[in-house]
Design a protein around this nucleic acid. Structure first.
Lengths: 197, 197
DNA sequence: GTCAAGATTGACGAAGGTGTCAATCATCGG
DNA sequence: CCGATGATTGACACCTTCGTCAATCTTGAC
């Protein structure tokens, strides 16, 4: 076939992800996406149709990577360490800025969930999918056999509590911009779930 | 003095609050504010200078009312009931829609915190003030003397955990739109903080 | 080498945003 | 009743946005 894509799609989606992550779905314009990816606006429209479709494509990338990282972080023998790793990962994912001096990038899914006027259709479905995935990854680790640490809640409920809590961390990060505070609060959640020490 | 304000400021700020709450700070335009309040755009600029200043005025209203409600909800003899009332109040504040069929309005402070590109200056300070207030109200109730229920964390840390968690509830509400789920998750947090039953 | 499928390009229209300003109007003090 | 103070009004300038489209260029297939 002739008429082949001129730009490197993988690269472009990576750049788009970085920008969406930094600015959020609603606040990112196609102009900026064009500038960031090096692909002309018209080409983006031709390739993806519209902003939402492009975003969904990018968001899938994000979900895969994010959930993968969470799964890895949770894969430790002692549950307490696993949860510490998990929260460390969540916190790092939003506070790690690409260059020093830049504002932290926060959380793409939360920005999208809260910053979109009426969240419906594919966008909401994609967010649900992400939160469901994180819940599932947590659930699997929490219900792993041969665990000695006693959990204060049934695994499913604990997983949901943790997912909800991580969304809260994101908001607190925006407002206080204090990583230590985030870590301390996360440690406290671990403490009430698994007991002190 | 002559040249007196023609519109009822209290009424206008109420309407503005409703709109900001529904749409979030960034997504609300002065046009819409003019339409909602019945005050011409030019008059709003004349009276408040710009959108941010108007918002800060409105946000103060919001903070007072919101924190007041939380304080009331927490004023119950048994701590467990107080926290149940608190979460009920938080959940109601975002899921109660003004008219049936309308989308829920969510949480103004969270929308502002997450939906604003780089959160700095007065806006961030206002958000901090709100979260600090809620934390303080919780702290006071949690450290009330003569409390029999044993708290799994020191009051300050418990208060921060709860504040962070409530921010998470907001995000989960946006995505799942399931009030029952919110209540269940909140009950689980109470359970791990105060023990089951 | 030729050709056509389809990607790219840059300009375009329409819509909506913010903030400004001169002209007009309403109101209170005297 | 008059005048001045300041609110109101609607048009204005300027910017950014989205999505489209005809013209142009690239490239693989034959």
């Amino acid at each position: 076939m002739a008429g082949v894509r001129q730009f490197d799609e993988g690269l472009a989606l990576d750049k788009a992800l970085a920008l969406f992550w930094q600015k959020g779905y609603a606040a990112t314009s196609m102009q900026e996406l064009a500038a960031a990816t090096g692909v002309q606006r018209g080409s983006l429209y031709n390739a993806y149709g519209d902003k939402e479709t492009l975003f969904l494509r990018v968001f899938d990338l994000y979900r895969e990577r994010f959930v993968g990282q969470m799964r890895e972080a949770l894969d430790k023998p002692r549950l307490r360490d696993a949860l510490r790793g998990f929260f460390g990962c969540v916190i790092a994912s939003m506070t790690t800025s690409m260059a020093s001096g830049m504002p932290t990038r926060g959380c793409l899914s939360t920005k999208t969930a809260v910053g979109t006027e009426d969240l419906e259709g594919p966008l909401r479905a994609a967010l649900k999918a992400l939160l469901d995935d994180i819940e599932q990854v947590l659930f699997e680790r929490l219900s792993r056999e041969g665990e000695q640490a006693p959990l204060a809640l049934p695994p499913r409920q604990a997983a949901r509590l943790i997912v909800t809590f991580t969304r809260g961390l994101v908001v607190v990060e925006r407002v206080y911009q204090d990583e230590k505070r985030l870590r301390a609060t996360a440690d406290n959640l671990i403490a009430v779930l698994l007991g002190p020490q």
